[in-house]
Design a protein around this nucleic acid. Structure first.
Length: 492
RNA sequence: GCUCCCGUAGUGUAGUGGCCAAUCAUGAAGCCCUCUCGAGGCUUCGACGCGGAUUCGAAUUCCGCCGGGAGCACCA
């Protein structure tokens, strides 16, 4: 066995792939959607809806539509359209169509008119605060009983530009006596003067979330709507539109709230902070954006597995970086080359030998990835981390990994052979770098920086995820012209 | 205040009346292995929020309580 198939002995990975629960009414394929607001790129929180929807579409076959919900010009970030799609691509999400709500206004107008004509909506010129107060008290506002013909006239006047901002809006009736205040009548269309990044000033009358979503979900043939629990009340409101129009309803699934600690996620905050130069950009490794995770060496497969594992139940959960990192480690461990990195390095001259040679595999389980060789001659000096040096008492023996055994003599290291038996006598294995190493700076997710020396070979793996032994997995980002390496910490 | 959702180990998760003195992953502790504090192997720790009811039998059903979360925008 060992000679025939050694890989079977080494890599018996526990491949327990947990399946998402089955979807109702999905036997004949599904149509699902991702409906991001293009106010910024995706962050770790958004990846749940992306992965879950993608997983189901892949499983049952069908179509995944990306629908940019860009109906509020002030919050639209023009670059976000592209960034979101790049994030999805990186995540391995297969979408079949991309549509922008900002280009579908004529459709929303058509349905607004139908709703008004049928008496299911009204044109309201109440001051918004007063209107809300009436709703709280389950009282109708004076416009709620306006005749459809009058409403239609007002609607036409609105479209023709006959009103100013905030002067009038179109409201969809639900049930003014509904026990749940979150569900009573909602504004469906309103005027916006700010130009839209995509359509400019072509339209002035904008739909609001619940209205455009209900219409689009139906028109685009959605069979399943899988979104967060925070939309529970929105679903109830949207169902009123379905019922007014006599549309069949998709299957609605609401997964629980995810609380993500220790991570900056607020698009608005990030945007402001980038402007102030506090972050280098949307992919600053301190952020929880998808691009930041990518930059840090988090594998898309780890994120996918994480959400698959969590599933789509309605329980509120805490996001666990620890669990994500464990999944990430599983994935990257196999390909990450092992290299030496010495933090807070201190030089130590070597005595007792003129020539030293080190040869070690780049990956302990994968000899095919090759070896790295180090040759040193003459007045040899190596660098060790202060942490190891503090532990080592004078006269004790250190095993410099893949190099040799050394006795501590003051600030010098005396070569005493290369026999691994010293390990059995309690010699400690430490990591080291030679004179041709590179200054390296590792940026940690918390914003701190760890500086040290990385061995020469590191330079050949720029752009890759590697393991700095006894330190952790890092993504080697770049090297400046003077040879300083910048790396980002992924996980231990 | 009103309404809704939820409640299994530290974190997630399986479990839909008996197979549960509760699954798996992650975590922690220990041992083995390994020239890494990684990987791998083994062992251990750790949970059904509480109280009633139904039942021969409940983590699974019902009621009450407690606890957590969300929504109540001319944001999405």
């Amino acid at each position: 066995m060992e000679t025939l198939a050694p890989e079977l002995l080494i890599k018996q990975k526990k491949e327990i792939i947990k399946d998402l629960p089955a979807l109702e009414n999905a036997e004949n394929g599904v149509v699902m959607r991702l409906a991001p607001n293009p106010s910024g790129p995706l962050h770790i929180g958004h990846t749940r809806m992306a992965i879950l929807n993608d997983e189901y579409v892949k499983r049952y076959g069908g179509k995944l539509i990306v629908r940019m919900e860009d109906t509020n010009p002030p919050t639209v970030l023009p670059e976000a359209y592209k960034m979101i799609l790049e994030d999805l691509d990186w995540l391995g999400v297969k979408y079949h169509e991309v549509v922008n709500q900002s280009e579908r206004f004529d459709i929303y107008y058509e349905y607004a008119e139908k709703i008004l004509a049928a008496g299911h909506g009204y044109m309201c010129s109440c001051e918004s605060e007063a209107w809300r107060k009436l709703k709280d008290e389950k009282k109708e506002c004076p416009h709620r009983s306006t005749a459809p013909e009058v409403n239609l006239e007002l609607w036409k006047k609105l479209l023709a530009g006959g009103f100013k901002v905030h002067e009038i809006s179109m409201v969809v009736k639900t049930d003014i006596n509904h026990p749940n205040p979150a569900v009573r009548d909602f504004v469906a269309m309103r005027m916006v003067e700010e130009p839209h990044p995509l359509t400019g000033t072509k339209y002035k009358v904008y739909p609001l979330y619940n209205f455009s979503v209900a219409i689009d979900d139906h028109l685009m043939g959605m069979t399943h709507v899988l979104r967060g629990k925070d939309h529970l009340n929105n679903t109830i409101r949207q169902i009123y539109v379905y019922d007014y129009m006599g549309w069949p309803k998709p299957v609605f699934i609401h997964y629980g709230w995810v609380s993500i600690e220790d991570t900056v996620l607020s698009t608005r905050q990030i945007k402001a902070a980038i402007g102030e130069g506090q972050y280098t950009g949307w992919d600053d490794v301190r952020l929880g954006t998808v691009s930041a995770l990518a930059r840090r060496g988090i594998a898309p497969g780890a994120i996918r597995q994480y959400w698959n594992d969590v599933g789509a139940k309605a329980v509120d959960i805490r996001f666990s970086w620890e669990n994500l990192y464990a999944m990430n480690r599983d994935i990257i461990d196999n390909d990450a080359v092992r290299l030496f990195f010495v933090r807070d390095p201190h030089a130590r001259p070597i005595t007792g030998i003129e020539k030293l040679h080190s040869s070690a595999p780049l990956h302990p389980e994968r000899p095919e990835l090759g070896k790295r060789e180090v040759n040193m001659e003459g007045d040899i000096e190596v660098w060790l981390t202060s942490e190891d040096l503090e532990m080592a008492k004078p006269g004790s023996i250190l095993r410099l990994k893949d190099l040799g055994n050394f006795e501590i003599q003051g600030t010098e290291l005396k070569y005493i052979g290369n026999d691994l038996d010293v390990l059995k006598k309690g010699a400690k294995i430490v990591h080291w770098v030679g004179p041709d190493s590179f200054d390296t700076e590792v940026l940690m997710p918390d914003g701190s920086r760890i500086t040290g020396l990385a061995e020469k070979t590191t330079m050949y793996y720029l752009g890759k995820v590697v393991q700095f032994e006894r330190f952790g997995f890092v993504k080697l980002d770049s090297a400046s012209t003077n040879g300083r390496i910048i790396a980002y910490f992924a996980n231990k």
